[in-house]
Every structure is written in C-alpha cells, then in structure tokens.
Write a protein that binds this DNA or RNA. Sequence first.
DNA 1: TAAAATACGACCATATAAGTCCTAATTTTA
DNA 2: TAAAATTAGGACTTATATGGTCGTATTTTA
Lengths: 135, 135
Amino acid sequence: MFQLSKKIEYALIALRHMAMGHAGQIFTAKEIADKYHIPYDLLAKVMQKLAKKGYITSYQGLHGGYTLTRNPSELKVSAIINAIEEKQTVAIIQCEAESPENCIIHSTCTIKNPLVRLQTTINKMFDELTITEMV
Amino acid sequence: MFQLSKKIEYALIALRHMAMGHAGQIFTAKEIADKYHIPYDLLAKVMQKLAKKGYITSYQGLHGGYTLTRNPSELKVSAIINAIEEKQTVAIIQCEAESPENCIIHSTCTIKNPLVRLQTTINKMFDELTITEMV
DNA sequence: TAAAATACGACCATATAAGTCCTAATTTTA
DNA sequence: TAAAATTAGGACTTATATGGTCGTATTTTA
Ligand code: SF4
Ligand code: SF4
C-alpha cells in the first residue's frame, strides 16, 4: 500500500523524457518503452490517457507520436496522477477517495480529521512537484 | 492506491479509543468492534499484532483484554503502520518498499530522486503524528 | 498498398486486501 | 470442576486492484 502505481511511474518517466527534448519534439510510445524497459502496451495506454486529458498531443500515422502540449513546469504531478487513475487517488483514507457512505463506520469514526489534515499537506506537495523538478 | 489499509485504520481507531480511557483501563476487542462497527475477527488480529509489538498489553481469560502500555503521545502513527503491515509500507515508490532489483527499470529510472525526497517529508509527517493528536 | 504509428476494448493472471471460520489456550467465577 | 469470556493464531475464502497482454481498428505517410 501507499505506493504510486506502475502506470503513474511510467507516465512520469515518459513525461520527464519528453521534457528533456526540444519543444515540439515528437516521441513514440515504442521508443520510450524500449529506452526504459517498460511494457509497451501498458505505456501506450498510459500515453493515450495523457493525450485524452490534454497533457500531450497525439499524432497518428507513420512518423506519428506524441508531443508535450504544455511547458513541463505546468505539469503538476498531482494532475498527472488524477489523469491516469480514475478516483481521487491521493487520499490516504477511503472516505476521502470515494463516497463516505461506503465506510460503514463513517459516522462513528474518530480518526478522520487528523488524517485529513495530513492529507492536505500531502496534496500540496504533489501539487507543487512538477516535471521540471525531475529533469 | 495511496490509502491506509483498513487494518491500520482499525488500529488507529482502537488505540485512540483506548487513549481516551483512564490509564491502565482494560478494553476488549469485542467492545471496541461493537462500538465502531468493525468486524470483530479482523480487529482482534490487529490488536494481537499491536500486543505482539508491545504497544498494548494483553490479558487473557475472563475479564481479560488489552491496556495501553505507553503514553499515547509516544504512539507514533508511523510505528503503528509498520507494526501492522509487514514491508516498509509508507514508500511511495516500489524500489523503496522492497528490493530495488525487483524493478526491472531501476537502473534506467529517472524519477526516483525527486520522489524519494517527497517521501522523506511524508515519513516525517507520519512520525510526528501521534495518537494524542487524535483524541 | 504497405508500414508504422495511435486508439481502444476485452481479457487474463497475479497479488493484495478484507473478511470469515475454527480450534486452542488462558483465566475467572459460579 | 465446569462454564463462560476472553486472547492467540492458523487456514481459508472472497473481493478488488494491479499489471500486463491481445486483437483489431484507424490514421497517416511514403
Ligand atoms: S470514516 Fe474513518 S475508517 Fe472510514 S474510511 Fe474514513 S477514516 Fe477510514
Ligand atoms: S526504479 Fe523508478 S520505476 Fe522502479 S520502482 Fe523505483 S521509482 Fe518506480
């Protein structure tokens, strides 16, 4: 528990790689998968999601690939995480990640508040960390 | 991902509950399970682990139960987490949680360092948070 | 038209998490 | 001494999440 998923790590690795190239440079999923020994299919999916969310721009066809659409300094890790995982994923307690009613002890739970406070700080950290800090 | 497990939440709830009683007061697993609508068997296991690690003291037999062995202010959340989960669990990247060789891209990975730095801060937060802050 | 790329859904295998069940062992008390 | 209430702990089951794979379109260029 408490780990970033492989998908997120792959996304970060890919984005960092792209951030090191020159502006507008096209990268293919295959090229990145090979370089970092990442399973191609999985990376492809991850990049498709990043494209769908607008963080990278995709070009189909021969000589296609992806370019960064934004400046790396605008690529917050928090945003990338949320782009790839569906539910609010940086939520150390479950009632913050999904609907509170899912936890049967929600009404009697007494540990929520201190943990939520802690989470706020963590959120801020992921918010302030951008791809720029990774190159 | 990135959530505390139910076991840990149950441990925190139980310890907080115990911290609210008077020093040396005995609590049973059943009593706490009932009060917070936690599955008894699961909570029992959790408390057994806490007892084994010395955070609470167990008394068997009729009118048995558990008492807090330490002052709540000495009960770090980080320690409780590690008591219950086996491997280094507050490790946002996998190579920090287990042996780095398990990650086939470890040698080529380029995102480790910034994340490790972030993790250091998170560790500190869990280290500074004690049960006292929860009562 | 062939090649190389993205797009995307379906699927599978494995691991983890969560919960349950069963049977001791211990202690107290009626 | 027997029954009751408790901890102790292993085995098991189920549910869910993760990581990965496969198959097939679609798009674009040479
Ligand atoms: S209500 Fe309490 S136990 Fe339930 S998910 Fe939230 S923090 Fe965890
Ligand atoms: S080496 Fe990189 S990809 Fe592998 S676990 Fe560590 S951070 Fe994640």
